[in-house]
């Protein structure tokens, strides 16, 4: 199963894509994608209901968040009321250690994203302040990365035996599916996704020459 684990809709301040248009795009362009996760910036969208779009387009659409920490940006899967009560998602300086711990305590999963980017990625902060206990998975393929940023992320994962995910980080319709995550076992909800990711039954993939390729 292939899921894009990092995307933004118009719910995010800089998102310009409507979710229905993501679905239309995936189908019109015959992208080999089974669904995507909306990871809105600094908030959790508990209002939008995408079940009718899931049915219409035969796609899995899940909701998560991208929060901002002292070690860069972090995707949080499995956001629930307990976690939102424990963390102020609107802050731009959440301690990563706390995000990891609170996520684990609330049955959620925190994954540092685009770690190779300056300032908003984990690698630069590790150089000055060291590794953070509790990180087990990182995003090694990000569709918005430049230059060597994804290679830097992959090297970090390999050095520390982190599991890897991938996501497009799309903010406009046509960028969905630039990168994705291959799951060994199909999932149909957030709980199952977290189980698969925690077990490491996942790999970051990019679409090249008509197939999903893992750069690992």
């Amino acid at each position: 199963m292939i899921l894009d684990l990092h995307s933004h809709s118009i719910v995010s301040d800089d998102g310009r894509a409507k979710v229905e248009n993501y679905c239309q795009w995936i189908r019109r362009k015959a992208l080999s994608l089974d669904g995507f996760v909306l990871t809105e910036h600094r908030l959790y969208d508990d209002e939008s209901d995408y079940r009718s779009l899931e049915d219409e387009f035969g796609l899995l659409i899940l909701k998560a968040s991208e929060v901002e920490t002292d070690y860069g940006h972090v995707l949080v899967f499995g956001v629930n009321e307990d976690l939102r009560a424990a963390l102020d998602f609107s802050r731009v300086d959440l301690p990563l250690q706390e995000v990891l711990a609170q996520a684990q305590g609330c049955g959620a999963l925190a994954i540092p994203c685009h770690p190779g980017r300056t300032r908003v990625g984990m690698c630069a902060h590790i150089e000055t302040r060291g590794l953070v206990e509790g990180v087990r998975i990182i995003e090694t393929l990000n569709g918005g990365s430049r230059g060597e940023e994804n290679a830097t992320a992959l090297a970090l994962a390999q050095e520390n035996n982190y599991h890897s995910t991938g996501g497009s980080d799309s903010h406009i319709v046509s960028h969905i599916g630039r990168c994705a995550t291959r799951l060994a076992t199909p999932v149909s909800n957030m709980d199952d996704l977290i189980t698969e990711l925690e077990a490491g039954r996942c790999e970051a993939v990019v679409w090249e020459s008509e197939e999903w390729i893992s750069p690992n």
Partner: peptide
């Protein structure tokens, strides 16, 4: 007016 972080660090928009 809002704030976020980016490649340039903490930013006020």
């Amino acid at each position: 007016i809002f704030e976020k972080t980016g490649r340039s660090g903490g930013m006020m928009f």
